[in-house]
Design a protein around this nucleic acid. Structure first.
Lengths: 235, 235
DNA sequence: TCCTCATTCAAACAGACGTTTCAATCGATT
DNA sequence: AATCGATTGAAACGTCTGTTTGAATGAGGA
């Protein structure tokens, strides 16, 4: 039972075993219940350590929380790295890849991992750990998206307009993660499974953006519809 | 064991003053700190009543919370009612009005009111009060939006596609309310004030949707850019 | 063997929490 | 004036919280 890892040269091995277990258990608890509702006793029970271990390894609950947010961020960042493209890749392809990657990161492969839920809590109700998270994690992705859009429209939109479009794209992806429960109430179950999984969502957001930017045909072919609109207007 | 007064019908007491004060103070407190962190002592201090009043009027903290969510919902619904249009109003105009109304409701006139922040908490981390909120408040607006879009594209998109577009629009509006702090970190301050207030946001989301649906010209004029794209493709 | 020292453990701490108690208060009715 | 029910008040209840204590443990080094 007693392991006593004793890994002084921590350069070779990644961290203390009980420390890692606490961080993992704390991340899950914080993601599930939030900072206030998660108790150190439950965390220690889940991690299989004594309550005193939290004081021993992290000092107090607050520092444990910040550490667990960072830990989740770093772990998740390694799981789904930013895509890289060969020089000359079509910007529309880059956009598609970026959106699919972003959604994959937000929604997870199967069901959304606790790391993302924990970070989402920070985004929605920022604490001290938030600004660091934004600078390290959010801003690079955001500026990559802006640069893709800039390349896509060949410099014909201002930085302000590019940021607006970028936020529109992010907002669409964001909704499914942040308000997924409500979306689930608004959309029929069979449609959820068929059209709101990762690939169809990425396709929709991408084609919606490409159509709005004039890179592809609109979602509705205007030539067919114009007739009806004119009929209506004449009536 | 004194039983609480008839809290369901306010026929006898038109506006129960302490009850109203508690609901208002509780809503603010829950919106600010969340359910767990908000304490009944602080609520009663803010409302200027004794702690026993909560047991007397609402039974316990949980029922107070549910009542305050409902109260916030009803109060906010009265502040910004759904727009109504004369028969024959252009659907694109309806869309513009709907989006402006939705944003106004989310973002508030000046700074976002606590009622919206409280409801947002329910949407992001649903409790028992959520489903009722969705059915009464969210679904009617969602289906109104879908019907506007249906009219706009003149029935050329399936209900599934219409719902996807509707969620795209809602997602864009939603981002500013739910993750407003993070948006504020990503966008320069002067741009926030000039382009992220209510009217410019509504214009952007509307024109983005209209362009994607082929109702108006794309945000970028394709005829100018196509030359460059073909040059790129040929290289 | 003994000592050192990092780590773990059960137990207890003080404080805050939601809730309950029961007497005091107030206004209207008798 | 007396009575009654509704409402308010101050204080206490038991429980749960984060944190701390001080002894016990066990593996290396002397």
């Amino acid at each position: 039972m007693n392991s006593a890892p004793d890994l002084r040269d921590s350069a070779t091995t990644a961290g203390n075993e009980p420390r890692e277990r606490i961080l993992s258990a704390a991340g899950r608890e914080f993601a599930e219940r939030g900072y206030e509702s998660a108790t150190v006793r439950d965390i220690c029970l889940a991690a299989g350590v004594n309550v005193a271990a939290i004081n021993y390894y992290f000092g107090d609950k607050q520092r444990l929380y910040i550490e667990s947010v960072k830990h989740a961020h770093e772990q998740r960042a390694g799981q789904v790295p930013l895509p890289e493209w060969a020089a000359g890749t079509q910007p529309s392809r880059k956009l598609q890849d970026f959106i699919a990657n972003f959604l994959e990161r937000l929604l997870g492969f199967g069901q959304p991992p606790w790391e993302v839920r924990l970070m989402m809590r920070e985004v929605l109700h920022p604490t001290d750990a938030c600004r660091e998270l934004v600078e390290d994690y959010v801003r690079p992705r955001f500026e990559l998206l802006v640069s893709i859009l800039d390349e896509l429209v060949d410099g014909q939109l201002s930085q302000t307009e590019l940021r607006q479009v970028a936020l529109s794209i992010i907002g669409q992806c964001f909704l499914y993660r942040a308000a997924g429960d409500v979306v689930g109430m608004l959309v029929p179950r069979e449609e959820l499974e068929s059209h709101h999984s990762l690939a169809p969502l990425a396709d929709h957001v991408t084609s919606y953006a490409l159509a709005a930017l004039g890179e592809t045909r609109p979602l509705v072919d205007a030539r067919q519809r114009t007739i009806h609109v004119q009929e209506e207007a004449s009536s």
